[in-house]
């Protein structure tokens, strides 16, 4: 019997307070069952793990266990958060399309995490434009979001945690990128000794 390959990856979710980081994370983790009805500010960090299957070319199976760290967006916790960012391999930046400021602050979030983990060393990055259900109140266009993501080589996703749409895509992207990086690393590790 061929046993499935199981990879692990640490993912951090970043963005301003109130953009829906916890809603995105919890809807992903609960398969859309747990939208937080009342806003509860994250104190320090929330953590969850979910296995995500990835498509592999041959008949073998692979799963990536995503260890997701949803750190507080409030400045109050600015000193604690970097501690939880150490060792992260992927990054999910979240902004609220109805609050331009939350989009403009993404560069600041990138700078903050870069002091802990160089972004260029990461496996993957995503930009999530959340609250797509409030499109008529949008202050930031999809094109602006895409352009920002492209500048850093990140993938761009529109999502609505409320409607559970587009939530799984960024996490599936991270899982697929992790598997691709592992395959690439194996080739390098094999080449290093031959």
């Amino acid at each position: 019997m061929v046993s499935a390959l199981k990879l692990r990856s640490k993912v951090v979710v970043l963005g301003d307070s109130g953009v829906g980081k916890s809603a995105v994370t919890q809807m992903f983790h609960s398969n859309g069952q747990k939208f937080p009805k009342n806003y509860l500010m994250t104190i320090g960090v929330d953590f969850c793990m979910k296995p995500v299957p990835v498509q592999v070319a041959d008949e073998s199976r692979a799963t990536v266990e995503l260890f997701v760290f949803d750190t507080a967006g409030q400045d109050l916790f600015a000193e604690m958060a970097p501690h939880y960012w150490e060792g992260s391999a992927s990054l999910i930046l979240v902004y609220d399309i109805t609050r331009a400021e939350s989009f403009h602050n993404l560069a600041e979030w990138l700078e903050r995490i870069s002091r802990v983990v160089p972004v260029e060393s990461m496996v993957s990055g995503c930009v999530v434009a959340n609250k797509a259900d409030l499109r008529e109140r949008a202050e930031i266009s999809r094109e602006a979001g895409e352009a920002f993501a492209q500048r850093y080589g990140f993938a761009f996703f529109e999502a609505s945690a409320l409607e559970h749409s587009g939530i799984d895509a960024p996490f599936a992207h991270v899982a697929a990128a992790t598997h691709a990086r592992y395959t690439d690393s194996l080739a390098k590790l094999t080449a290093a000794v031959s």
Binding site: K10, A89, Y182
Partner: peptide
């Protein structure tokens, strides 16, 4: 055998 190895599969 130096050519074979144990590989870590993510996170430390």
């Amino acid at each position: 055998d130096d050519a074979t190895f144990w590989v870590t599969t993510g996170m430390f």
